[in-house]
């Protein structure tokens, strides 16, 4: 592998891993989502540092160029991460839908109750509010 691309690749991987750690430390990224990025970063780092490993893997997947092995695995990891996101987004969409429906129903129930309370001439005045 040309030394130039090797150095660039190592630097990018180190930066990625360090940045992910920093994001987790600042709580900008949850542990769950950092997993994929850390696995990607360290694997790519291992491939970039060790030429023996890269050669072995290249022969395993039948790549003629070492750099294409790097690209291949980089893409593969990204695909896995994207799929993971799609699954999570689907779950989140589902949860948001249920929340939306619950809020709508609760709101109607609340308004109905308020109307009943108003009809019974009970005023929510400041003395009552303080107890809430």
């Amino acid at each position: 592998m040309p030394p130039k691309i090797q150095i660039i690749s190592i630097l990018i991987c180190i930066f990625l891993v360090a940045y992910v750690f920093e994001l987790v430390r600042r709580k900008h990224l949850s542990e769950e989502y950092s997993m994929g990025w850390l696995v990607t970063g360290t694997s790519m780092l291992a491939l970039s540092v060790s030429e023996g490993l890269l050669k072995w893997v290249s022969e395993l997947v039948g790549a003629t160029l070492f750099t294409s092995t790097l690209f291949f695995f980089g893409l593969l990891f990204l695909m896995v991460i994207c799929l993971h996101f799609s699954i999570r987004i689907s779950a989140l969409t589902n949860q948001v839908r249920k929340l939306t429906q619950s809020i709508g129903i609760l709101d109607l129930e609340k308004k109905t109750l308020e109307r009943q309370i108003r009809q019974s001439n009970w005023q929510i005045d400041s003395s009552n509010l303080e107890q809430l």
């Binding site: 939306t100 709508g104 129903i105 709101d107 109607l108 109905t112």
Partner: peptide, 22 residues
């Protein structure tokens, strides 16, 4: 009519199902 107002536009199916849940 009684009205359930969803906080944002969620689509026909979601609105309809809200009615069924109620």
């Amino acid at each position: 009519a009684n009205v359930i107002s969803l906080p944002y536009n969620s689509g026909y199916g979601v609105a309809l199902q809200t009615g069924f849940i109620f």
